[in-house]
Design a protein around this nucleic acid. Structure first.
Length: 583
RNA sequence: CGGAGCGUAGCUCAGCCUGGCUAGAGCACCUGCUUUGGGAGCAGGGGGUCGCAAGUUCGAAUCUUGUCGCUCCGACCA
């Protein structure tokens, strides 16, 4: 391809509104153009990279035995009503009515495709002989994001690979799941991404039933908990906390007396600690939840955050949510911000770390009042079996596996594998007859990859001051030919010949045939980040040599003009095998 | 959905506070000449409903109100 014949609108300056590196660089390098908040055009270069990522995903899905099909983005709302997900998705589900002859049809744009694919399987699969099977597609998904942001990281329309496995048993599901897990590792390896597979919230099946594939990046929206010592990794919702350090476990032997103090109009932990001159860790906060319709109270150290998943599992509730202000007032007889454990008549749970807080500051269940000097056992009690790990892990907490210190890292979720169980097959009647003529429900798994996020997370983690540093696998073009003077005939002859020979050898090559100064060509080459740049002209050509430079290398090297095409093709082939080469 | 900010040429921005000649600069674009290894120089040229609407005023990019769009922080995220 010739530069002059395609569309590559590079920008010297950072457009207003772009903040994070991947967004800035995708715009400046002419990969994307924003059409509205959360919707982008992929320009020729961006589209090439996206298609390369897609091709890798497709290749590995096929290798893992998954079968590609294509479902419509347009779906009837009734399909979503059958699984109750109209409510579950809420405003995220883009849906609308259209006129069709003399009636109205209510449609939804698919945010994912469990319903459509399960309905398909329910219609055509009826025997264990047809199972297991894993179906996948690569398709545009639609979600009405509350707040699109970070360039292509969070958009309302995005390209997703979604796969669904259908099995006859939990053991068979585990095998399907493992195949997908391994395929994901191969995909992200080939893309040159540094990723972590972390344990994630597991849903109905429990146990080891969900993993998220995370790319560690400072601008990631997710937080993963990582132990550098043993490799334990989990997302914040799921991360367990190891047993408390022995030194902190001194029994709460407080000396102070319980004393009611005035805290007028001051309800938050931060405000109260400031007013009373104590540390948040000296406080115990009391959160009121409603579990399956019944209110309960949870005690946490002031500087800790509740983990609703852990709490739900500890309490054994199906549904758990923070209580409304009305319920809180009814239960505590005080406005929000003044709840405390003393004299509360509802079920009381506590995070393990609460036991170590002596002479604590707590709410007094009375407007504008707190207690100081509160002590567990003397002033209030929590049943021994109501102590549990109920909070989010924090930096410095003990690793549940090895006891070393945990670290919190920001990350971008690029993939998710999940054992679904029978939620959708039950709702949509996907059953099969087993070899003993029993009718049973098909067991499902689902597996997603955000294709756009592969690009964004790669750029987020592989760039420098000059621009993107593409790995060979996803670069829009593998080789850039840069003739320095397009008016010079011998230079252009060499460039044209190399272009044709490399193309014939299966190398993606772009010829910068613009009549531009060398500086402009170099800046654009670095900004876009072509892995291999070949300069034709100047001193080296007179000596029968070409100058080549890897994007991640600091210095160029010279190769003989003689046999250059073969040499370059060989270099490209080698670099394709090593997706993670670094500067 | 709460909080904050920004909308002036394709891009980055000045002008607005304190209303007043024909609305500006740099980059980009077009023409010519020069230049040619890290975003060139000179000369000339094209391009703007100042987001939109209403209001105040003799007069609005500028003041007021409303509205739309975009961005950031937070909440939310099967």
């Amino acid at each position: 391809m010739r530069w002059s014949q395609t569309l590559i609108p590079t920008m010297k300056e950072t457009p207003e509104g772009a903040e994070i590196p991947s967004h800035v660089l995708m715009l400046r390098a002419g990969l994307i153009q924003q059409v509205m908040a959360g919707a982008y055009t992929y320009l020729p270069l961006g589209w090439r990279s996206l298609r390369k990522a897609e091709a890798i995903v497709r290749d590995e899905m096929d290798r893992a035995g998954a079968v590609e099909l294509h479902m419509p983005a347009l779906t009837p709302i009734t399909l979503w009503e059958r699984t109750g997900r109209v409510d579950a998705f809420g405003d995220v589900l883009i849906n609308f009515k259209v006129r069709r002859a003399n009636r109205q049809v209510h449609l939804a744009l698919g945010p994912t495709h469990e319903e459509v694919v399960t309905d398909l399987v329910a219609r055509f699969v009826s025997s264990y002989r047809q199972l297991p099977i894993t179906l996948y597609q690569i398709q545009t998904k639609f979600r009405n994001e509350e707040r699109p942001r970070f360039g292509v990281l969070r958009t309302s329309e995005f390209l997703m690979k979604d796969a669904y496995s259908f099995d006859t048993s939990v053991e068979s599901l585990a095998a399907s799941y493992d195949k997908m897990y391994e395929a994901y590792c191969r995909i992200f390896d080939r893309c040159g991404l540094e990723y972590l597979a972390v344990e994630a919230e597991s849903g109905p099946i429990g146990g080891d039933a969900s993993h998220e594939f995370m790319v560690l990046a400072d601008n990631g929206e997710d937080v993963v908990v990582h132990c550098a010592a043993c490799g334990y990794a989990a997302n914040l919702e799921r991360a367990e906390i190891g047993a408390a350090k022995a030194s902190a476990a001194k029994a709460a032997a407080g000396s102070a007396a319980l004393k009611k103090v005035d805290t007028p109009k001051v309800g938050s932990i931060e405000q109260v600690s400031k007013l009373l001159g104590c540390q948040p860790a000296q406080m115990i906060k009391t959160l009121i939840y409603v579990a399956d319709g019944k209110p309960l109270a949870v005690l946490l150290r002031g500087d800790h955050d509740a983990n609703e998943g852990k709490l739900r599992r500890a309490v054994g509730a199906a549904k758990l949510e923070l209580a409304s202000p009305e319920i809180i007032e009814q239960v505590t007889k005080a406005p929000v911000g003044f709840a405390g454990p003393v004299g509360l008549a509802i079920g009381l749970w506590a995070d393990r770390d609460v036991a170590a807080v002596a002479d604590a500051v707590i709410g007094a269940n009375e407007a504008d009042k707190h207690y100081t000097g509160a002590n567990l056992g003397r002033d209030f009690t929590v049943a021994a079996d109501h102590f549990a790990d109920l909070r989010n892990a924090g930096a410095g907490d003990a690793c549940p596996r090895c006891g070393q210190s945990l670290a919190l890292r920001h990350a971008i979720e690029v993939g998710h594998v999940f054992k679904l169980g029978t939620k959708y097959s039950d709702a949509l009647g996907a059953k099969f007859l087993d070899d003993t003529e029993q009718q049973r429900t098909i067991i499902m798994g689902c597996y997603g990859i955000g294709i756009n996020r592969i690009l964004a997370s790669l750029i987020e983690t592989r760039h420098d001051e000059q621009g993107i540093v593409w790995p060979m696998a996803l670069a829009p073009y593998e080789v850039l030919l840069a003739p320095l003077n397009v008016a010079q005939e011998d230079v252009m002859q060499v460039a044209e010949r190399l272009h044709n020979e490399l193309s014939a050898a299966g190398v993606d090559v772009l010829l910068d045939d613009r009549d531009q100064r060398a500086g402009v060509k170099f800046k654009d080459a670095d900004l876009i980040g072509f892995p291999l740049r070949v300069v034709i002209g100047g001193r080296s050509l007179k000596e029968g040599k070409l100058e080549i430079k890897w994007r991640w290398a600091s210095e160029p090297e010279l190769i003989p003009l003689e046999g250059a095409a073969e040499k370059l093709a060989e270099l490209v082939r080698h670099a394709r095998e090593n997706p993670r080469h670094k500067s």
